[in-house]
Design a protein around this nucleic acid. Structure first.
Lengths: 161, 161
DNA sequence: GCGGGTTTGTTACAGTGTATCACCGCGGCC
DNA sequence: GGCCGCGGTGATACACTGTAACAAACCCGC
């Protein structure tokens, strides 16, 4: 159902994510430039949400500095294409695990122990939110739903250790 | 059900909010100092979410400067007591309209036209979230649920005007 | 090759939040 | 009274996050 079952195994998806990103861009006639690819890769490879400055540091090497502003631009692009998400409560970014329809409701599950972020979605939850908003007479444009807590893997690890 | 029906009328509650804040502090043996009172007042009087620096500017006067760091400390205190909320998507603060149980699920409805923020809560929504989290094997500690869109008043105003 | 759009580099800056240390006021205690 | 401890405040400095503005490089169609 969700990716990110374990944070050792989640590296396996990096190639898939890059391939999908490339396909999406080609399909839409947009450029998947080297910089955008590197940023996508950095976000996908990290097991947890990355700040823009973290990414800039990751991509920088002696003699080749990548400025944060460049990273922000690449991230903006990737977010527009639905390839990465921003975690508002952390000022950080994660790769999009599934392909959602744009605007579809997603819950981010942020583990405060391992820092990993999982995505979940639920029609039931979305219906409940829709009804709540309708009752309040509010027309939604954009929703942020982030839960911080402990993921199953970390909880087991703590009980075992 | 919710406060904040109109943003002209919402100023009426300021006195109540201050009274409640004072009562809460007395009850818990905490100090409701002048600075904390002023910050609470500034947050309560503004019809929309205030940034910490906005508050600092509001409270400052020629000859009496209130530094942002002081405002942050007061806000931290007021948030711990559940008297103000932080809107993560805006880096801004609003007064708490109802007295929730700590940890109770609340939705923030942020109007992108008037900037007003309403609070709503819904057992149905909360149940849906609980079930979704349980299915994902995730133990929640803290939830952020913010919806940006158009409030009823602004929608009517736009249709009329 | 040329013109025009997009992408990137660079610098500077605005906004948000925290760390640190010193000082003040107040209450308890000897 | 003098002393001490403690929470709150003031003040400075700093780290982190994000954006504006402009120039240079690049690509693509003509």
């Amino acid at each position: 159902m969700h990716r990110h079952e374990s944070h050792d195994a989640c590296h396996t998806g990096v190639g898939d994510m890059l391939a999908r990103a490339e396909a999406v861009c080609r399909e839409r006639g947009l450029q998947f430039t080297p910089l955008r690819r590197e940023v996508m890769e950095a976000v996908a490879e990290a097991g947890k949400a990355q700040g823009a400055y973290d990414i800039a540091e990751t991509l920088s090497a002696p003699g080749k500095r990548v400025a944060p502003v460049s990273v922000y631009r690449a991230l903006d692009f990737l977010m527009q294409q639905g390839l990465v998400h921003r975690i508002a409560s952390r000022n950080a970014f994660i790769p999009c695990a599934h392909g959602h329809a744009p605007g579809e409701g997603v819950v981010f599950l942020i583990c405060r122990t391992c820092g990993g972020v999982d995505e979940a979605s639920s029609g039931e939850l979305e219906d409940g939110l829709d009804r709540t908003l309708k009752r309040a007479g509010f027309t939604p444009a954009h929703t942020i739903l982030e839960v911080e807590g402990d993921c199953g893997a970390c909880r087991e690890r703590q009980q075992a250790g």
